[in-house]
Nucleic acid binder design. Structure first.
Lengths: 339, 339
DNA sequence: AGCGGTAATGAAAACGTTATCGACATCGAT
DNA sequence: ATCGATGTCGATAACGTTTTCATTACCGCT
């Protein structure tokens, strides 16, 4: 705990009166070191508080025992999934790291995941779980990866997702059951499989009920609060507004509720709102949000479990897992006002 | 995106027909490189998808632009705080990383934070926020650190915490107001300032109401679900049980509710339970948990903000911030049954 | 022609590790 | 005595970067 610089393996070597290689061998439990020196070295290590540097170590050996969760931001969905991943890692010898790379904009053409993977893979990380990545193929074959809600496109990464289309149908069924006919859709990040599937599910369900979707009432955000502001305004101040809005995720739905409040539009009095995800915040909003719940914790656990199999080079039978959703009715939906 | 190994700076150099140093200079916008080569190099970089390796880079230069949140586990409290930290980092050029080191047990005498700091500081990380660390002094002076709910002891790290004692008083006042006299306390990790302050607040409030605390009804867990199991059983199957249990954090309180259910003890019918924190899970439990809410998001934001000041070598006026708590009454508390 | 000055580039050392391999004892067996 | 094993240990070369410093080329001067 000397307040100056870090203590390196060389310091330990000098203090113990042996070579650097010896320290390294002791640190890594390699054999070929006598009991005696081993003991002495350990004492010095403890005394000096020496711990090997990850960067230096990982630069040399390419197994680190660390798996990374790469997310664009620590937002509620990602953190819930993270809890699940952490649960699954419990007891296993891996360390868990979550890296958020969304904010960095260095003008590169690639997405944040591409850069993060390139920077971390094979050095800091042994394997990674990507949350809502816009990349679609694995860059290295030595590097195990699993995607949660992957990009829609060619290429392939083993992935875990919710039954997005089915969930969307649940939402529409609920609204139609309440008597809504004119239903708007606020979509998510256009590149994600989930956003596409939810929109498709929305359209299918509408058609199934014999309802037409007014394309003027189909707008798209990017799954974030900020990104939903514009679309929400658009929907809420439309000439012929909808009586209900189905947002492709909770964050967007919550912003719809906020914007509605700003505009003096009552929820669910004048417009019903239903979301998708069931993040913790949805329960706390006023009014609380009716939403399609997806098992975020379970999704995280499954992702980690598949990743472990991949890392062990085991055959991964189900390589595109899809988990069920369910409708959670709260206070943001009601029968439409009779006009 | 060749599926073999990573592309290094040397590959780029070879492909561009220049030296390694030149590539490095272009990557870091150093001057002394002609427009022409600069352009050509950038093309090759893009084409090859080259991104510099964090480990290698951070090994050399000791500024990385990454700040770390060091937590023992991705549990609800930590992830909420993380959201706040992330909010504060938004728009700033730093990258955010959360590293969980709780599970690693390598027999060293030091806590996980000590090891994590030693491994990451000055190499991967520019600065760190420690959540509930059991360490108490800063290891390097070159390394900015802020603690959230620090260890109780000598030494000093700038810290952010909730008004723990005050919050505990709110809890006791609420229970006493409902008519409870025999109140048990389930404490937290004994080394943490928060756990100590909450216990002290509990005792003071009890005394303030002229109530004696039965030491048989004061037990301690470690803030985790698992760690609360034993103490919960102890409390719930005591010879002369309490009519209300105040747990030092929500996780413990939630486990008390679970154990009560297992034992067929009704909450709040036979025993009232109040927690501390107001994590998202408390709202979802059955019955929902009455708890002392602390502003976790705000705590995260403040921690990040103080850390930024520290990193900028600014004077940090308040260096031990304390934020207010408030009582949230839900369904796990009620008046005691008349005997 | 010779000079200094500037601009562009490259060679090489360093960062803190680990792995390979060779050096040196020691020792039992021939 | 000599030999080969065996057991400990240390030099050294990587790993992929950045930085310092030297080198080269070119230019405009006298």
């Amino acid at each position: 705990m000397v307040p100056t610089g870090r203590v390196t393996i060389r310091d330990v070597a000098k203090a113990a009166g042996v070579s650097v290689s010896t320290i390294s061998k002791v640190m890594n439990n390699r054999d070929g070191i006598s009991e005696a020196t081993q003991h002495r070295v350990r004492e010095v290590i403890d005394e000096l508080g020496y711990v090997s540097s990850v960067s230096a170590r990982s630069l040399r050996v390419h197994r680190t025992g660390v798996i990374g969760v790469l997310i664009s931001d620590f937002e509620p969905y990602a953190t819930e999934v993270l809890k699940g991943i952490a649960q699954e890692c419990h007891g296993s010898p891996v360390e868990l790291m979550a890296w958020s790379g969304g904010t960095v904009q260095d003008g590169s053409a690639r997405g944040w995941e591409q850069r993060l993977i390139a920077r971390l893979a094979g050095t800091v990380l042994d394997a990674a779980i990507l949350v809502a990545p816009s990349m679609t193929s694995v860059p290295f074959d030595r590097f195990a990866m699993v995607a949660i809600d992957p990009h829609e496109g060619p290429g392939f990464i083993p992935s875990i997702r919710a039954d997005d289309a089915g969930g969307a149908r649940l939402a529409v069924d609920h609204l139609v059951g309440l008597g809504h006919r004119r239903i708007a859709f606020l979509g998510g990040r256009a590149d994600l499989a989930s956003a596409r599937a939810r929109e498709q599910g929305f359209r299918e369900a509408m058609a199934g009920h014999g309802l037409v979707v007014d394309e003027a009432l189909v707008v798209r955000g990017d799954y974030s609060l900020e990104g939903a502001t514009g679309p929400a305004h658009e929907l809420l101040s439309a000439a012929d507004p909808a009586t209900a809005i189905f947002a492709a995720n909770d964050l967007s739905a919550l912003r719809v509720i906020e914007v509605a409040r700003e505009l003096g539009i009552g929820v669910p009095g004048q417009v019903s709102v239903v979301g998708f995800d069931d993040i913790p915040e949805s329960l706390r909003s006023v009014p609380s949000l009716t939403t399609v719940a997806q098992p975020m914790i379970e999704i995280g656990r499954r992702a980690a479990s598949v990743l472990f199999q991949l890392m062990a080079r085991e055959d991964v039978p189900e390589t595109d897992v899809q988990l069920p959703t369910r409708l959670v009715v709260r206070d943001s939906t009601a029968a439409p006002r009779r006009d």
